[in-house]
């Protein structure tokens, strides 16, 4: 496969960036998208150029490190995958591929395609936990039976990998899907209910402070989420927050 890549290059957070075009050849459908970028980078290094910086780590779709806005979609055109699981068979010979960083005020660019998502961490610091010690001297794990449906739903939302695709896809750069996933996980479990109200208020406050946009229910996040987190969790957070605010 022969492709034309249009990649955002930016030296550091302070400098201006621009789209640079790179032709690339010999790409196989079995390669992952990031392996295609590896080949590009190897070529750049051999030519004496600086490689394109992009975040990646586990390359199996679970660490949430990889990002990339590919041809107008977070994690590219495939569904239910991260960029590292996107395979080149999704593209055709001769395609032009735009590769841009996730864009949001709360995700400033560090270099090229690498963005700083520590705003997500700070939201979690504000309340993404259950306040129990780590002594292990808690009650027996089976002391509170949890309905399977609740446990399964809590798991579904807990499978969020914090990649930020929801923010990148949202026309408002809203972080609601991410925040609501964590709020939902704990709100669904009896252990988390105790401090559910404080949690949702604190996490939303931090989310607002970080400069994310507002949710306008377009549903783009749900479609682009590699882990299939549903809008239901946003509604659940809306509910939790409403109750917590009027209490």
């Amino acid at each position: 496969m022969k492709l034309t890549l249009k990649i955002w290059r930016q030296k550091n957070a302070k400098s201006e960036g621009k789209i640079v075009e790179y032709p690339i050849d010999g790409i196989d459908g079995d390669m992952s998208f990031l392996e295609m970028l590896d080949i590009l980078n190897d070529g750049l290094i051999n030519k004496g150029d600086e490689p394109v910086a992009f975040d990646h780590d586990c390359r199996e779709g679970i660490c949430g490190m990889c990002s990339l806005f590919i041809n107008g979609e977070a994690h590219g055109p495939d569904r239910g995958v991260t960029t590292c699981q996107l395979h080149m068979r999704m593209f055709k010979d001769g395609d032009t591929i735009f590769i841009e960083p996730f864009r949001a005020k709360a995700f400033p660019v560090i270099r090229d395609l690498v963005v700083d998502r520590s705003s997500f961490d700070r939201i979690q610091h504000a309340g993404g936990f259950i306040s129990v010690g780590t002594s292990g001297n808690t009650q027996d794990a089976n002391a509170i039976p949890i309905p399977k449906h609740d446990a399964d739903t809590a798991f579904d939302v807990a499978s969020c990998i914090g990649c930020g695709a929801c923010v990148a896809s949202c026309k408002n750069a809203s972080a609601m899907l991410f925040v609501s996933a964590k709020v939902s996980q704990f709100a669904l479990l009896p252990q988390g209910k105790v401090e559910a109200h404080d949690r949702v208020l604190n996490m939303v406050r931090q989310m607002d402070e970080e400069g994310f946009g507002n949710c306008t229910n377009t549903g783009a996040c749900e479609v682009e989420c590699p882990k299939g987190i549903s809008l239901e969790s946003i509604a659940r957070m809306n509910r939790e927050y409403l109750v917590a605010s009027v209490k």
Binding site: I130, G136, N137, A141, P147, K148, A154, F186, Q191, G192
Partner: peptide
């Protein structure tokens, strides 16, 4: 065994059976 107790207390959604137990 403490690990499991600890993780459940932290809200780790480990798989459960229909009776609600792990």
């Amino acid at each position: 065994t403490n690990i499991i107790d600890q993780c459940v207390a932290q809200g780790v959604p480990l798989a459960r059976e229909y009776g609600g137990l792990l």
